[in-house]
Nucleic acid binder design. Structure first.
Length: 928
DNA sequence: TCGCTGTGCAA
DNA sequence: TATTGCACAGCGA
């Protein structure tokens, strides 16, 4: 006879803890071991007296379940889990693992759902199943092959079959247990039931009407208060019944072999029992095993879990085939997530990981800012469903000691390090003195190449590629806001499963994404461009840039004075005071009160449009000029002059963050602060550039920018000989263009012609229309059309290239850059004119903008590599799309100027030469 | 406090 | 009805 025991882990832990609450077991380290002790005792008793052939333990996961979705108050009155229990849970899990007993865990469901589902399947497969739990709700699951094995409060055991259940609850059928629970409710789970109806009344009603539904149908036959209560709470009764119903179709596979009772891992158990100081227990279970430290056996295993893992894997695969898994559920069975928190375990883990060709890792930290972040722990995974968490202490010295074990591992260039947003984790480890070395695989950046304009968050990727919704960070830290907890305040017992899961998921994502990279021919782009540039960016961010704060402070005062004066003038002219920077209020003042125009333009939300373009057309009114001035000054003051100094870190420098996975074209973006939109055009804006200065008197600012890189790329792509020749002859490209489209000699091109040609050149790159160009140049549409026609006539290859790109995009639904970066344009065949138009412009622009991005990334890698070999004091500190900025030591200036120029110009060879301009100065403005 | 809107800075 | 971004102030839920 096959005999299966299914244990409700969490319920047993709670019971064991509270059974000894007056007399808890505390070991010499001050740890309350009541729960682990009680659990182990129960387990041993079963193993000895009941002799099961199969066994498993199910645990609830912290994730909310479908019941919470049904009823948001579900378990809402639960007090916070006592800390002793939070600590006990991972310990008990370790014990279960050491016994080689599979753990059944499924996010979105509770242990009773998992146990119920397995029990029903086992019943059909000829098992005798015992569900061990103090929870009486399980009574609903009992049948001729399934029993409730219930440790009673008195210390004895109660075994309930169908007969016993009916007797105990005074019911006619077992399934009425659910109706009973639905009627009387459950204070513990905050299930309401019908107020005023207890077990007695419930039984009476069920005897008469069989089910909750039956009672509701016949509510008219009831009398007095009872009638009132039932009819008032009928919805609540139905809901309560639903909540009390244990789900029997959760997506877990029933795999007999996996549940087979196995020999425990004696070594591991001895170690754990020693840790917990279970001396008597140790003697009882392993007589002759003195309480001493046990050294791990070297070699042989490929996994820290020996043979247990393959079984788990088999189950996993079977799950996928057998059951359609809801996207919001986890299909995990018997995950092995372990705490690594002793000297021996560090060594054991390092030894194991050192033998792998790759591993995923993830750091848990106290801040989203990688330069300020302190690590609270590191998780690792080298195999699906297996992960390890190394908690740290936030004491830098101690943590460096702990991590010293892992240093060689992170430096080993034969092992691929996998992570999600690796730049961050590498920096966090760098803060602790560990300079992680490649090769790298960043799952976020891999997906960026696969689907550049989708989102690349780990949760999204997991749901899409693994059909699995990871536990959200909010589950641990709470919702964002003032009350959100910091990682530093969370005990590692609550973090480690989340952390392990992240490493596990990241590893699994790598498996999914690497084949996608291959399929999309993006492997070289990934390994040779994005991964190396990631490291370059990290170093640039860490380096930061020096700001002249006193000059900004002085300027802030100047601006403030001017702003106050402008405010006064504006209020005078308007005849009232209002908030000038509120477009809504400003619109009302200008267009309702002052009636500056008859038919003011409105925005899509019905407000008056007061943007720069609109106001420029109304400059004849005195107030408008003042408002434009006010806007400019306010903008500069709030966005730059006052904001930049606030972002200075302890080292006196500002450190931007480059985001490598935001711009769909392949460009970088920059935040906190955005260093890619520092003003330069207006004279007031130039003052801000002046505040970006070299690090000290021994250094100078050097700015090197590609000249007309996007136009050169278009010339090369279209193979337009006229344009290529113009570039080869080092002509001013806009003047050359003007000469052609206006059909005059180059010497006769005036500034207006050049301006129009320049705008046309930019427009071409963006996929311009006659309308757009007419707007941009403020000329009639007809003239804009003529300009475009002339352009295409003079540069027929450009026209042909644009048509070809769009046609190719219609076939492929994607476009490609020089280095193989794709952008998908699934709207390119849309019947919607507007939507399709957008896709067509992207088809023109993305390869050009993206190729420029590819080229400068390549240049950055080459430059960084060269600078490393030269051991230079100079640093590359910023990138602004087509420009690189360096803090150059004066001794190295000539070398840097010539070599950087050379490396940038030769980053990639095209039919058109690349040219760069080099500038130097004490500040960024001068360097141009 | 969050998210949206309008605005404006850069390549 | 021109490409790609980020950040600000105001404002309402």
């Amino acid at each position: 006879m096959k005999k299966l025991f299914l244990l409700d882990g969490m319920a047993l832990i709670f019971r064991a803890h509270f059974a000894l609450i007056r007399n808890p077991r505390i070991n010499s380290k001050g740890v309350n071991t009541s729960a682990p002790m009680g659990f182990v005792n129960s387990l041993l008793e079963i193993l000895k007296k009941q002799e099961p052939t199969h066994i498993a333990v199910s645990f609830d996961l912290p994730a909310p379940t479908f019941r919470h979705e049904m009823y948001k108050e579900y378990k809402a009155n639960r007090q916070e889990t006592p800390e002793d229990i939070s600590i006990a849970i991972p310990i008990v899990k370790q014990i279960v693992d050491a016994f080689n007993i599979p753990r059944l865990e499924l996010a979105g469901f509770e242990a009773d759902d998992v146990i119920g589902t397995i029990a029903k399947k086992a019943s059909g497969a000829g098992f005798q199943t015992y569900m061990m739990t103090p929870d009486k709700d399980y009574a609903q699951l009992v049948d001729e092959n399934t029993f409730l094995y219930r440790p009673s409060t008195k210390g004895g055991i109660e075994v309930l079959g169908p007969k016993e259940v009916l007797e105990k609850f005074d019911l006619d059928r077992v399934d009425q247990v659910i109706d009973l629970l639905g009627l009387q409710g459950d204070a513990v789970d905050n299930i309401p039931g019908v107020p005023g109806v207890g077990p007695k009344t419930a039984c009476k009603l069920l005897k008469e009407y069989s089910t909750v539904e039956g009672i509701i149908e016949n509510v008219d036959q009831l009398k007095g208060k009872l009638k009132e209560r039932v009819s008032e709470n009928r919805d609540q009764a139905i809901l309560s019944k639903e909540l009390a119903t244990i789900k029997l179709d959760v997506p877990v596979a029933f795999n007999e072999d996996q549940l087979l009772l196995k020999e425990p891992n004696k070594e591991e158990l001895v170690k754990i029992f020693n840790d917990l100081e279970f001396k008597t227990l140790l003697k009882r279970v392993f007589p002759g095993e003195a309480p001493k430290k046990v050294a791990p056996k070297p070699g042989e295993q490929t996994s820290l879990f020996g043979g247990a893992a393959p079984a788990a894997k088999a189950v996993q695969e079977e799950v996928v085939e057998e059951i359609e898994i809801p996207i919001d559920t986890i299909n995990s069975v018997a995950k092995n997530y372990r705490l690594i928190d002793s000297e021996e375990r560090y060594q054991e883990l390092v030894e194991y990981l050192s033998k792998q060709s790759e591993f995923a890792f993830d750091t848990e930290t106290t801040s989203l800012d990688s330069l300020l972040a302190e690590a609270v722990g590191v998780s690792f995974s080298a195999k699906k469903d297996e992960a390890y968490y190394v908690p740290l202490t936030l004491d830098k010295e101690k943590d460096q000691k702990i991590l010293a074990h892992f240093k060689d591992l992170f430096l080993n260039e034969k092992i691929l390090k996998i992570g999600q947003n690796l730049k961050y984790d590498i920096q966090v480890l760098d803060n602790l003195g560990i300079a992680v070395k490649g090769p790298f695989f960043d799952t976020m950046l891999a997906h960026y190449l696969i689907e550049p304009d989708k989102r690349h968050g780990m949760d999204t990727l997991s749901e899409h590629y693994l059909n699995y919704k990871p536990v959200s960070i909010e589950t641990i830290l709470g919702k964002k806001g003032k009350k959100q907890k910091n990682m530093r305040d969370i005990p590692f017992t609550e973090v480690y499963e989340y952390a392990c899961e992240d490493a596990d998921v990241t590893l699994q994502l790598k498996y999914a994404l690497e084949s996608q990279l291959k399929e999309k021919d993006a492997e070289s782009l990934f390994y040779d461009l994005e991964m190396p540039v990631m490291e370059t960016l990290r170093v640039m961010e860490k380096e930061g840039v020096n700001l002249d704060v006193p000059s900004l402070e002085t300027y802030s005062v100047t601006l403030a004075d001017e702003i106050v004066q402008l405010e006064k003038d504006i209020y005078d002219l308007a005849g009232e005071e209002f908030t000038i920077s509120s477009p809504k209020q400003l619109g009302i003042v200008l267009f309702e009160k002052m009636k500056l125009v008859d038919k003011p333009k409105k925005t899509k939300t019905g407000q008056y449009a007061t943007g720069e373009e609109i106001l420029q057309g109304l400059r004849q009114h005195d107030i408008v000029g003042k408002i434009l001035d006010f806007r400019q000054l306010n903008k500069l003051k709030s966005t730059y002059v006052d904001a930049l100094p606030k972002l200075i870190k302890e080292d006196g420098r500002v450190h931007t963050t480059y985001n490598q996975a935001v711009a769909a074209t392949g460009r970088l973006s920059s935040t906190d602060p955005n260093l890619q939109n520092i003003p330069i055009r207006s004279s007031r804006g130039k003052e801000i550039r002046k505040a970006f200065v070299a690090r000290d008197e021994d250094h100078v600012f050097m700015a090197v920018d590609y000249s007309q890189v996007e136009l050169r790329i278009m010339a090369a792509f279209s193979n337009d000989q006229e344009m290529i020749n113009a570039f080869k002859a080092k002509k001013d490209i806009h003047t050359a263009t003007a000469a052609k489209v206006f059909k005059v000699a180059e010497q006769e091109v005036d500034s207006d012609m050049r301006r129009k040609a320049k705008t046309a050149n930019f427009g071409i790159i963006y996929g311009v229309s006659a309308f757009g160009l007419s707007q941009q140049l403020d000329i009639p549409r007809s003239e804009a059309k003529q300009l475009i026609d002339a352009y295409f006539e003079e540069f027929p290859s450009v026209k042909k290239y644009m048509d070809d790109v769009i046609n190719k995009a219609r076939e492929d639904e994607f476009v490609t850059t020089l280095m193989g970066r794709r952008r998908y344009l699934r709207d390119i065949n849309s019947r919607n004119f507007t939507v399709r138009g957008m896709a067509e412009r992207n088809a023109i622009n993305a390869p050009i903008q993206g190729t420029a991005a590819d080229i400068i990334k390549k240049a950055m890698i080459d430059i960084q590599q060269w600078m490393n070999t030269q051991n230079l004091q100079s640093k590359m500190i910023m990138q602004v799309h087509d420009e690189l900025i360096f803090d150059v030591h004066k001794d190295e200036l000539e070398l840097m100027k010539s070599k950087v120029k050379e490396l940038m110009e030769n980053a990639y060879e095209m039919k058109v030469p690349l040219e760069v301009e080099v500038g130097e100065g004490t500040n960024w403005l001068q360097a141009h």
